[in-house]
Each structure stands twice: as C-alpha cells, then as structure tokens.
C-alpha cells in the first residue's frame, strides 16, 4: 500500500480547490434542501398521520429525488480520477514513483468516498431540525445513512472503473451515468415482471429502490451489504487490472 496516504491527501485537496467541488456541493445541498422542505411541508399538512411511512423513510428512498441526486452527484466525482491523469500524462509521473497500482486505485477510491461522505454530512442537520419537533429513531436514521453510504460506495467504484477505461472525462461521466441508470432501470424491472420469474428475482436483487426502502426502514439486510461489497470489490479489482494493463499499451 505504498503511496496510499499522499495520493489520498492530494486527491481530496484537488477536489476541494477546484470549482467543480463547490458547484456539486451547492447543487446537491440545494436539491436536498428542497427535498426536505417538500417532505416536511407534505407531512405537516396532513391532519392525522395516516401514512405508513415516516419523513425519514420518505427522505431516504421513497421519492425519486434521492436517486436523481445520486445520478447527478456520483459521475462528476469520479470522472476526473483517472481520465484526467491519463489525458494530461501525469499518470506517468504517478506510476513511476514507488507506488503500487493497488494503492493508487484504493487511494483514489477512498478520496471519492471521502468527498461523497462530506457532501452528505450536512444533511444530518435536517434530522437535528426534525428532532426538535418530534423524536427521531436514530437507529433507523443510522441504517438509512448506512444505505446511502453503501449505494454510493458501489456507484463510486463503478465510476472509478469507467474513469480508468477512457482518457476523456466526459466519456467517463456518460459511461458512469449509464451504468448507474442501467442498474436503476434493471431494479425497476422488479415492478414490471411477474413474480416467480428468474428475471424478477434478479431485478429485485439489484433494485436500489428496494435496497433503500429496507435501509430507510431500519432493516440492515446482509444480502444488500454483500451485493454492494461485491460491486466495490469487483470494480476495484478490475480497475487495478486496467491500471496494470497501461504498461503494455499506449497509456
């Protein structure tokens, strides 16, 4: 794991000294703020609580806004990571330093994860605000955040792989968005296929909607953890192999 720390520090540094980070954070918090406002407004206008879900559940996954935000947020975080290094040639100085490809991949991945988490961090304030009007089940909230983290971790690892596959940031962005969309649409397939079919089971298994509903209700299902863990492990492994392969071709 030689070179892990300095690369991680530099990646996080780079993200926050470029305008991209602040634009992303602004957009993200704006959308989330609006999301929160709409939910609070909706629930406060109900004369009596007839809903079978809490604002918390709604916030984490029962409106399409959460997924929209994920589609918008993840590809721009990861698009730069390898594509830019290859386009500008800095990958040559990076890989000729005494570092291992695995450390480079992991450092870049963790930096994306750190960025992602730091974007979500301010949303805890919403829960603090909610807590002033009524009790919050912090266990459920934690599970929901674990869900957000898992889904993000999976998507970011896919984004990292896409970024390693191309020299163009834009192409990396598009490819990542397509992958995430693809997974989402496959998940939606759960609702259009019939129960009992293999396809239905597959769709239900990858459905991010179902995953977030579980997490948002405070259910931590080990299948979900294994699913996202596998995505992360597979993507990172593939990325390492891709980085290794640059030695044999035109990087």
């Amino acid at each position: 794991m030689r070179g892990f720390w300095p690369i991680l520090k530099r990646e996080v540094f780079t993200f926050f000294v470029t305008p991209l980070a602040w634009v992303l954070i602004c957009v993200f918090l704006l959308v989330q703020g609006m999301h929160f406002y709409l939910l609070v407004d909706h629930f406060s206008n109900q004369a009596e609580v007839i809903s079978d879900q809490t604002p918390l559940q709604a916030f984490f996954g029962n409106t399409v806004l959460l997924y929209l935000v994920l589609f918008l947020l993840v590809p721009p975080i990861t698009m730069r990571l390898f594509a830019e290094e290859r386009r500008s040639g800095t990958v040559e100085t990076l890989l000729t330093a005494p570092v291992s490809p695995a450390a480079v991949v992991l450092a870049k991945y963790v930096s994306a994860l750190v960025t992602y988490v730091s974007m979500w961090a301010p949303t805890v304030l919403y829960l603090v605000i909610l807590n002033r009007t009524g009790p919050i089940d912090w266990h459920v909230a934690s599970a929901a955040y674990l869900g957000v983290f898992c889904v993000g971790a999976g998507y970011l690892s896919l984004g990292l792989l896409m970024s390693a596959l191309t020299k163009s940031q834009f192409l990396a962005l598009i490819l990542t968005a397509m992958c995430i969309m693809g997974l989402f649409i496959l998940g939606v397939g759960e609702f259009v296929t019939h129960e009992g079919q293999t396809l239905h089971d597959v769709c239900a298994h990858v459905s991010v909607w179902a995953h977030m509903n579980d997490f948002g209700s405070g259910i931590i299902d080990s299948r979900r953890l294994v699913f996202y863990g596998s995505i992360v492990a597979l993507s990172l492994f593939c990325t390492t192999r891709v980085v290794d392969s640059w030695r044999w071709g035109d990087a």
Partner: peptide, 29 residues
C-alpha cells in the same frame, strides 16, 4: 523506482497545485 528520478518528455504536472505543494507531495510519494 526509488533509485530513479524520472522526468517524462511532456513534463506532466498538476496545474491546480502550487509548486511547493506539488514538490512536497512528490517527496512524500
């Protein structure tokens, strides 16, 4: 790699860093 200091032909650098920051990063790496 540790015994070698290599300067590629195009001299790729990170444009967003300051010179001293970049060199400290490289030294740590």
């Amino acid at each position: 790699k540790r015994a070698t200091g290599y300067m590629p032909e195009a001299v790729p650098l990170y444009p967003e860093m300051r010179v001293v920051e970049y060199l400290r990063f490289r030294a740590e790496l």
